[in-house]
Design a protein around this nucleic acid. Structure first.
Lengths: 189, 189
DNA sequence: TTGTTAAAACTAATACCGTTAGTTATAATT
DNA sequence: AATTATAACTAACGGTATTAGTTTTAACAA
């Protein structure tokens, strides 16, 4: 009633292999064929672990969101206010710089409304809400502010990743200035 | 020395057909097979107009950036300062809401460093620079500020499009508050 | 008017992908 | 030692982009 396979792959190993392909060669190279080759099995065998390519994308999205959360959470420890916002913001862009493929996978779930995906994402939202509580925003303002920070972080990261910022201008300087401007704007909302 | 084909498709017609597929069924349905079917020709015939799927993506990206610029440019006419920033910002998100597929195509060029793609995008950057000149930002600050506004616009739009904002909270209210906060933050930079 | 030429269509074939169906081997439990 | 559930496998199908080679079309030149 509790069997064992020839190879006995665990889902986490598969996701780590997929994440490695994504970071090294880009998310478009995360195919069932490439993944199976890396794992030393045949493509159809992967269907024992998830429901096809769509299923893989969903699992990989959750995996990526959790990895991102693990980086963000410690960044906000022991600091508060502007400093806390700046710390998690820098942690966010550094994660995308280090793991562009995993971050891309984060946004490639077939259905972002999926409950498991939402649950993983809500942890990041809640973390951001806590960090922004220092500004004592009233009512829905705090939630709007969270959306704003997420927009900046995601927008900056993905534009940087895809080469959207062409000009010879220091990216870290841009980022710090942008975050600081947004913080200042929120405080006097 | 100047021939004519049976059908005589022009590149612009092909791109419009591709844009229609992208907006109606999603960018993943913009395949050479679907595009050829819609145009009433065979897939290999498309190679007479662009260099394969990669070439189509590049052309479609430029097409999309130009359509976006055409919407942004008039939005900033006759207004200045905060109002101008708010106008082009709203024009941006409304474009993405109306043409999600075309906007997605904007970011799917195989090489964002490509000169033609860069030229198309630089027009939007220059437009934004002009709008932000009202704030008399000194030195590189203006360029950093442009990056910030682009980050917000792109981040908000793509998160909204992909269902990243789950909570039952008015999206337009969020957007206006975010832009206003950023503007305020920039002014007192 | 006729012949040439270049563009843009076509057919045929290949390789790769995801997917399904059905089968086999493994290893823990009974 | 027999059972059983898991996870591997092979084989086959349909869809995809792509290449090679061919044919049709229509403008230009003679």
């Amino acid at each position: 009633m509790s069997p064992r396979p020839k190879v006995g792959l665990e889902l986490i190993e598969i996701l780590e292999a997929g994440a490695e392909i994504a970071d090294q060669k880009g998310i478009q190279d995360v195919t069932l064929a490439n993944l199976a080759k890396k794992l030393g099995i045949r493509p159809p065998s992967l269907y024992n672990h998830f429901d096809g390519l769509g299923g893989l994308r969903k699992e990989l999205a959750i995996y990526g969101i959790e990895r991102l959360y693990e980086v963000l959470a410690p960044a906000a420890i022991g600091v508060s206010g502007d400093e806390a916002v700046m710390m998690i913001s820098k942690a966010y862009v550094n994660f995308v710089r280090k793991h562009p493929g995993i971050y891309e996978a984060t946004l490639m779930a077939p259905d972002m409304e999926d409950e498991e995906v939402q649950i993983a994402g809500s942890k990041i939202v809640e973390l951001t809400v806590r960090v922004l509580q220092a500004y004592k925003l009233e009512g829905d303002t705090a939630l709007h502010a969270v959306r704003g920070l997420r927009s900046i972080l995601h927008g900056f990261s993905s534009l940087e990743k895809s080469g959207g910022f062409k000009m010879a201008l220091d990216l870290d300087e841009s980022f710090e200035m942008i975050i600081q401007a947004y913080i200042n704007g929120i405080r006097y909302q």
